[in-house]
Design a protein around this nucleic acid. Structure first.
Lengths: 241, 241
DNA sequence: CACTGTTGTCAACACTGTTGCGCTCGACGG
DNA sequence: CCGTCGAGCGCAACAGTGTTGACAACAGTG
């Protein structure tokens, strides 16, 4: 079952409270924590090395299938890793910010981890973990839109708008990073080239701003998308009064 | 060929003007068109049947590897299929609409094909085809933001904002559809259940709107996200004057 | 007729995630 | 101290995936 439905008891894993030192087979013992760390290390390698179970075993110096003693499947591991990084993002958000800056901080933090661990962010782009830290995100965004002035159903739908949009934004950017560096470079240069070679008759608008199109940076687009979310909230607040 | 993207001779395919009737091996001959159509048929089956090359061969009544005589790899086939459906979306947009309605029409049409062919839309969520119809989309969005009142770099970055956001939105929704129906149902009911079971002390905002959160529909979120794009453009226009 | 190039078939390769079987070793009861 | 037990790991294997190269059958051309 690789679906997003996992009600049954999730983690016996390490039942004993005692850390029980190092022991077992040869030197280093395999813990969920170690597996998560190794996963992050692999995910950080980005496009140069895909995130696969076998690669994970290699990184751990253990047999790949040993991972399945600690996680039901790869999906559950990804969920755990994603929730972990999400927790770090949340912890890094300073309290006391205005609601706009809290959303910006959430976006910036999420983007940062997405750029650092593209494989993880990409895999989570269209799902939810339903784990502890995700509820913290819900709480954070809901707090922001409430502080902005939205209530009830209006607040709920705007939370979803912001949450889904951020997830999509970050996932999209991460997935793009999973292409090889050469492929990305080729893609970008191809775009700016073809903008200029377009038939002016058929595509007058493109021709008019071909230079500017070639000069648009990913960061500028990111900024615009985040600000669009904030603007949408502000506009909705202004309308409902 | 008024399209901008075809430098390396891409498709000899059917060089002869004569349709050369039916011939070849046993009865039906395999054409790129037939392959695209079969792909669409499979993609329309959604989560019940993954879009794989072997399944495609089955659908065609031919060996799976025969596809590689007409497309370099699966990716190129997906690009072609995606561009095809995108063309239909564009053709369905009535001219003469205001710029806002043109963006809404593009979004609605894209969502419609994404819901119909989730596998295709999902695969295209974080890439671009750089094919003919994609340039038509660029032209359409650029025309809209220009009509709204944006120029130069401002128009360019807003085009990217709208384009990337729509792609992400549609891809996200499609990817969600690729989960099995049961998994999706379980996921949704789990969310609405857990919203209500959350600790009121730790998550006051969630508790306050738990009911409303459970009642938010995908369509409402979609609407909000599209309107957010339009609002962002309008706001930017108002600011730059 | 022979020749050539196109196109479908078949077997195979290099991967992927995942499972069942056995072995080893640490921990625990007596 | 010793025997038993069970958790944790390695190994081999399975069912999938996309893709390639060799082979064969046919169309059109000289």
């Amino acid at each position: 079952m690789t679906n997003p439905a996992s009600k049954p008891a999730s983690k016996p894993a390490v039942p004993a409270p005692a850390p029980r030192s190092r022991s077992k087979r040869s030197g280093s013992q395999l813990t969920p924590e170690a597996i998560v760390q190794a996963s992050l290390r692999i995910a950080a390698r980005g496009s140069s090395d895909a995130f696969t179970v076998r690669r994970l075993g290699e990184e751990l110096g253990a047999d790949p299938t040993a991972v399945y003693r600690h996680f039901r499947d790869k999906d559950e591991l990804l969920l755990e890793v994603a929730d972990r990084t999400l927790g770090e993002v949340l912890d890094s958000i300073r309290p006391g910010l205005g609601w706009q800056d809290r959303i910006r901080a959430l976006a910036d933090g999420s983007l940062a981890v997405a750029l650092k661990y593209p494989a993880v962010a990409s895999a989570m782009a269209s799902r939810t973990t339903r784990r502890a830290n995700e509820f913290r995100v819900v709480e954070l965004i809901l707090g922001a839109v409430t502080e902005a002035g939205l209530r009830g159903a209006e607040a709920a739908v705007h939370y979803r708008m912001v949450g889904d949009s951020l997830l999509a934004l970050v996932g999209q950017r991460a997935a793009y990073l999973l292409f090889s560096a050469e492929a990305r470079a080729a893609d970008e240069s191809a775009w700016s080239r073809e903008y200029r070679l377009v038939d002016p008759q058929a595509f007058p608008q493109i021709t008019a701003v071909a230079e500017e199109l070639a000069g648009v940076t990913q960061d500028a687009v990111y900024q615009a998308r985040v600000e669009a979310l904030i603007t949408a909230i502000e506009t909705s607040v202004a309308q409902h009064r």
